[in-house]
Simulated assay, not measured.
Amino acid sequence: MNANKPSGYFITISLDAAGQRTDNFLRTHLKGVPKSMIYRIIRKGLVQVNKKKVKPEYKLKHDDKVRIPPVRRSEVEKSCIFTTLDNVAILNDAVLYEDEDLLILNKPAGTAVHGGSGLSFGVIEGLRVLRPDVRFLELVHRLDRDTSGVLLIAKKRSALCSLHEQFRTKGIKKDYLALVKGYWKSRSQKVVAPLLKNALTSGERIVRVNAEGKPSETRFKVEERFALATLIRATPVTGRTHQIRVHAQYAGHPIAFDNRYGDDAFNQTLKVCALNRLFLHAISLCFEHPTSRKTFRIEAPLDIKLNRCLLYLRANKK
């Protein structure tokens, strides 16, 4: 072996880290390294577990010894890390609650939950920069980039598994507020329509109601009515991509400033109240705390733009 060639380093998997896919584990420990490079070094066998080559989907076990190879990062990749430091400070102000198991944010609109699709970082990468001493930080669920509101992050593997199981068994209730086009007649309404995800040539994901899609259900309740719009509370029973946005459109009431499923004419009527972002906000989350086992409910206040829009609409109801 060349004595001048760096040999990387080894990490012994703790109980909290056990159960993670190898690729996800590497993304945590190689901050700023593109996913494409992570997959490449795994395929080449440069990443080894217990001195053996593994696949990206291999789930790490307690006491596994993982070899992390030396990774040469370009200056561009390094600059992404420093750019992250400049941009994630807003996340400190977004923390709603934190304990040994959980960290809960009021995610700002326009912030992705994780890096990818041309983004060098997201919420989870930013939190790992802000909290370098926290050994485990993983998203429990996701929000669309343009959706604001309650976002749940696990600080322990055991908490992540508990909360994932609650999502799987529909033990977690999520409520959203959305401003939609027109007068929503029914005080409450259930939309049951299968959703099929399609990828465009541009790489964007578009979801449509389609009989060949996955079963999907959203419950809507009117919160407040205005002259040309309705504020509704949406509770997704299933958790499909863009579900609330597509089901609202399917019901004939697209959400304000939805750049994929919205109505341009409706959006123009709202520019007078200075709204220029998707009016979809994850207002509350209710679940069983993974340690105390008590019912835990948290709410995230609307941001200034959404509040200002509602104030204007209330003042101009007639």
Rank of each mutant, 00 (worst) to 15 (best):
E212L: 08
E212H: 05
G213Q: 01
K214M: 08
P215R: 14
P215E: 12
P215Q: 10
E217S: 14
E217Q: 15
T218E: 07
T218F: 13
R219N: 15
R219K: 13
F220E: 04
F220T: 06
F220H: 10
K221S: 13
K221P: 00
V222C: 05
V222L: 14
E224T: 09
R225M: 04
F226T: 09
A227H: 08
A227G: 00
L228G: 14
L228Y: 13
L228R: 14
T230S: 15
T230E: 00
T230V: 01
I232L: 04
I232P: 02
R233G: 11
R233K: 15
A234E: 01
A234P: 04
A234T: 01
A234H: 01
T235E: 07
T235Q: 13
T235P: 00
V237H: 09
V237I: 15
T238G: 09
T238K: 08
R240L: 10
R240T: 06
R240F: 12
H242P: 11
H242I: 04
Q243K: 02
Q243I: 07
I244L: 14
I244E: 04
R245T: 04
R245Y: 08
R245Q: 01
R245S: 02
V246F: 08
V246W: 06
H247W: 11
Q249E: 12
Y250W: 13
A251Y: 08
G252V: 01
H253Q: 03
I255R: 01
F257H: 15
N259S: 14
N259D: 11
R260A: 00
D264A: 15
D264G: 02
D264C: 03
A265H: 11
N267P: 11
Q268T: 13
Q268E: 14
Q268V: 10
T269L: 12
T269W: 11
L270M: 06
A274L: 12
R277M: 05
R277A: 09
L278G: 09
L278R: 04
F279V: 02
L280F: 08
L280Q: 08
H281R: 06
H281L: 09
H281C: 09
A282Q: 04
A282E: 00
A282W: 11
A282K: 07
A282Y: 11
I283Y: 08
I283S: 07
L285V: 11
L285T: 02
C286R: 07
C286E: 12
C286Y: 00
E288M: 09
H289M: 09
H289D: 06
H289A: 04
H289Y: 13
P290S: 03
T291S: 14
T291Y: 12
S292Q: 01
S292F: 06
S292P: 04
S292D: 00
R293G: 01
R293V: 02
K294Q: 15
K294I: 07
T295K: 06
F296S: 05
R297P: 08
I298C: 04
I298V: 11
E299A: 05
A300W: 02
A300V: 06
A300M: 08
P301G: 03
P301L: 05
L302I: 01
L302Y: 01
